[in-house]
């Protein structure tokens, strides 16, 4: 049943967002800390049960993969509702501060990636 997949996904999100909010309160931070990450781990945990009793049927999986496929369109909508005008109106200080932060991040990706422990069998072969 498709609704089972959607319900599992929704339950994961609600649990994750709640725990993220709770973590924010505990740390005295006015933000959600890691809610989406916790939700993703929960979904992974729930959906990777291979025991026959919990294995997701194909229709149930469709309830999750549909939303996964809607991800790019949703991101396009997100871009269309972002406050681009305010970003441009921020003037040289905002433009330069934002640009340098991005440049610094990009420059460090290859530096830090070298320290990653790659899995023994490279996953590239089976991907894409």
């Amino acid at each position: 049943m498709i609704i089972y997949g959607v319900a599992i996904l929704s339950l994961s999100m609600l649990t994750g967002v709640f725990l993220g909010d709770l973590l924010g309160v505990i740390l005295d931070v006015e933000a959600n800390v890691g809610g989406v990450g916790i939700a993703m781990l929960m979904l992974l945990f729930l959906s990777s049960r291979t025991e026959s009793k919990f294995k997701l049927g194909p229709m149930t999986a469709d309830g999750i993969t549909f939303w996964s496929a809607m991800y790019i369109p949703i991101v396009i909508a997100m871009a269309a509702k972002s406050d681009v005008y305010a970003a441009l109106k921020g003037g040289p200080v905002a433009l330069l501060a934002g640009t340098l932060a991005v440049a610094g991040g990009f420059a460090l990706v290859p530096v830090l990636s070298r320290f990653c422990r790659r899995p023994a069998i490279p996953p590239q072969g089976e991907q894409s």
């Binding site: 967002v17 999986a61 939303w67």
Partner: peptide, 11 residues
Amino acid sequence: FRDFAIIATAY
């Protein structure tokens, strides 16, 4: 919806 779809990609 953004977070919902992002979480779904973890599947």
